[in-house]
């Protein structure tokens, strides 16, 4: 089975703050890591490979430094990797990111299965996986909590639905986004890290894409624009709910209802 896993480099901690005066993101620039949700996708790929054979390719998009997450994937057992890196991809929103990734996937070859993590810890949208599947015109199943069976033509998975789990059989090629905790991700192996230290990571730029229209990438290809970022209001107020037990209970019930917790 030929599997592609999308991975992203994200800030080492999501404990970023916005400077209330300048509106700038304050974050530790050099502390980065692989998006924790992508580890579940990669682990899923590694288990499938162990069971069914085949090869795993990881694809990332970002600055040259994002090679680190591809090397990390090698140390976990991925076979190949590629990085989409081009200033013209910069400032991409979900749509432009998904488009560039789908173009990158097409440039890399044919895959039976594309795996994505549920979301990233920086963007938090959970939208890139489904959008890639649209551009690749393949079926997609999101919120996969379990893989039941894999045959040559199909795989059967459990999908988390609002009130139930649906057991879905999907034909290859397809895209799955997997839930957190589908499998406990393994740690990178020192042995593999050493063995893959010299493995080449090809860099793909816009010139390697099938669609070379700059307007479909980066900021130009992004319908959404961030007008402003600001820190969240924190709930620091304290309210005393006083009175008799009955009055207190009434006040609390009203409060909970106002908070939509009832």
């Amino acid at each position: 089975m030929n599997i592609l896993v999308c991975i992203k480099q994200v800030p080492g901690s999501s404990e970023v703050k916005v400077d209330p005066d300048t509106g700038l993101l304050i974050r530790d620039g050099d502390n980065v890591k692989m998006n924790p949700y992508d580890l579940f996708a990669l682990e899923t790929a590694l288990r499938l490979k162990k069971e069914k054979g085949g090869e795993i390719t990881v694809l990332s998009m970002g600055p040259q430094a994002a090679k680190a997450v591809i090397e990390e994937a090698f140390a976990m057992g991925a076979d190949h990797g590629a990085l989409l890196s081009d200033r013209r991809f910069g400032g991409a929103d979900v749509l432009a990111t998904s488009y560039a990734l789908s173009q990158g996937i097409k440039a890399l070859g044919d895959f039976d299965l594309i795996l994505c993590g549920k979301q990233t810890t920086d963007g938090d949208t959970a939208q890139v996986g489904p959008e890639i599947s649209e551009y690749l015109e393949i079926p997609a199943v999101a919120n996969v909590t379990k893989i039941r069976e894999v045959t040559d033509e199909t795989m059967t998975v459990e999908m988390d639905m609002p009130n139930q789990l649906e057991v879905v059989e999907v034909a290859f090629p397809c895209l799955l986004t997997v839930e957190k905790d589908i499998y406990q991700p393994r740690l990178p192996s020192y042995v593999l890290k050493k063995a893959t230290a010299d493995r080449k990571i090809p860099i793909y730029s816009l010139d390697d894409m099938d669609d070379q229209d700059e307007n479909n990438y980066g900021l130009s290809g992004s319908p959404t624009q961030v007008k402003k970022i600001f820190p969240p209001e924190t709930n620091t107020t304290q309210t005393m709910l006083e009175g008799t037990a009955e009055e207190q209970a009434k006040k609390l019930t009203t409060t909970l209802a106002d908070l939509k917790l009832i």
Partner: peptide, 21 residues
Amino acid sequence: TVGRQLAPRVAARMRTGLTAD
């Protein structure tokens, strides 16, 4: 769980923006 996969697929088809959550 349905909306979170349907909306992005539709947005990509319409080549339009989608803001999550």
